[in-house]
């Protein structure tokens, strides 16, 4: 791994739905500042935004790290939530365990993980029940 890659770190507050997505907004600004193309920025920020929302609604918050290297942007989302019991099922469009109150807030349609996959070139989910989840996504230039 390249040690000189640029990194941004964020703590994602799991108690506040209103502020969910702030890290993605910051990343969007930072990437714009360093001159990344709008198309890449949009993919990165949508994927990260969905992941951030998931950490807030399913896992009580976590951390987000974004690294910019020569050939890609990498997003690493870590939480210590309940983990995902069946990843294949969770990846299906429409599958959701979100409660109704989340749906009335505009999320919980079961499109988050599929969207993350759609907008990134690589996506890896490491998860352990009762321990947490780590999702690594890459968007190549």
């Amino acid at each position: 791994m390249n040690d000189e890659r640029l990194g941004f770190h964020f703590d994602v507050d799991g108690t506040n739905f209103t502020s969910a997505g702030q890290a993605s907004v910051e990343v969007k600004k930072n990437l714009r500042q360093i001159g990344i193309s709008p198309e890449i920025i949009r993919k990165v920020s949508i994927a990260m935004y969905e992941g951030e929302i998931n950490m807030v609604i399913h896992a009580g918050g976590g951390t987000a790290d974004v690294y910019v290297s020569e050939n890609c942007v990498e997003i690493v989302l870590r939480d210590e939530g309940p983990g995902i019991a069946n990843v294949d099922l969770a990846m299906q469009e429409g599958f959701s365990t979100a409660p109704d109150n989340i749906r009335s807030l505009g999320f919980g349609a079961g499109m988050g993980l599929p969207n993350m996959k759609r907008y990134t070139d690589e996506m890896k989910i490491e998860t352990q029940l009762g321990k947490g989840t780590c999702i690594t996504m890459r968007v190549f230039f």
Binding site: I46, Y49, E50, G106, F107, A109, G110, M111, G112, N115
Partner: peptide, 8 residues
């Protein structure tokens, strides 16, 4: 009204 649909 579903934001994930918009994002999709």
């Amino acid at each position: 009204d579903m934001m994930s649909d918009v994002l999709a």
